[in-house]
């Protein structure tokens, strides 16, 4: 009933128990719980980060989409103006070509006319000469002269 050596024994037992409880219960379990707590905290922060990144990516994708649309619109407008330009050029080319051909034809015609005139002139001279010959062979009268002249005129 009184204080005795049992106290010393119990004291040793108590210290041993603290050591054993620490070794087998507290240390492993608290380490595990700490690890779990950290894991949960990490997971939460990771999900938070993921959310943030998703938001950024969404913003970025929207911007990219908008840029692409703008670019496409630009390209279409450019293509339209280019096609108009090509059309215009072709039209101009055709016009100048046509003008050139017309001018060439006109020149040809002029040349032909001149050539014909030249020929005609030569023939007139010829005819005149022939006429003059015929007249000279016969008596040249006023009447003859007149008829020759009128004949000449008619032939011209």
């Amino acid at each position: 009933m009184s204080i005795s050596i049992t106290l010393v024994a119990q004291l040793i037992a108590f210290v041993l128990m603290i050591w054993l409880v620490n070794k087998y219960l507290w240390a492993p379990l608290s380490a595990l719980m700490e690890a779990r707590r950290k894991k949960i905290a990490d997971g939460l922060s990771a999900s938070e980060r993921g959310k943030h990144e998703l938001k950024l990516a969404q913003e970025r994708s929207t911007e990219l989409l908008r840029e692409a649309k703008d670019k496409a619109n630009d390209i279409i407008a450019q293509a339209n103006s280019r096609s108009n330009q090509i059309l215009e050029e072709a039209r101009n080319n055709a016009k100048t070509e046509a003008e050139r051909i017309v001018a060439q034809a006109n020149a040809e015609i002029d040349r032909e006319v001149n050539r014909a005139k030249e020929e005609l002139r030569a023939q007139v001279a010829d005819v005149a000469a022939t006429g003059a010959e015929r007249i000279l062979k016969r008596e040249v009268t006023d009447k003859d002269h007149e008829s020759a002249i009128s004949d000449l005129i008619a032939r011209i």
């Binding site: 009933m1 009184s2 204080i3 005795s4 049992t6 106290l7 010393v8 024994a9 119990q10 004291l11 037992a13 108590f14 210290v15």
Partner: peptide
């Protein structure tokens, strides 16, 4: 064991 003063006093002393 806790009705033995030695036990409780041992723990209290520690």
């Amino acid at each position: 064991p806790t009705t033995d003063l030695n036990t409780t006093l041992a723990m209290a002393l520690f």
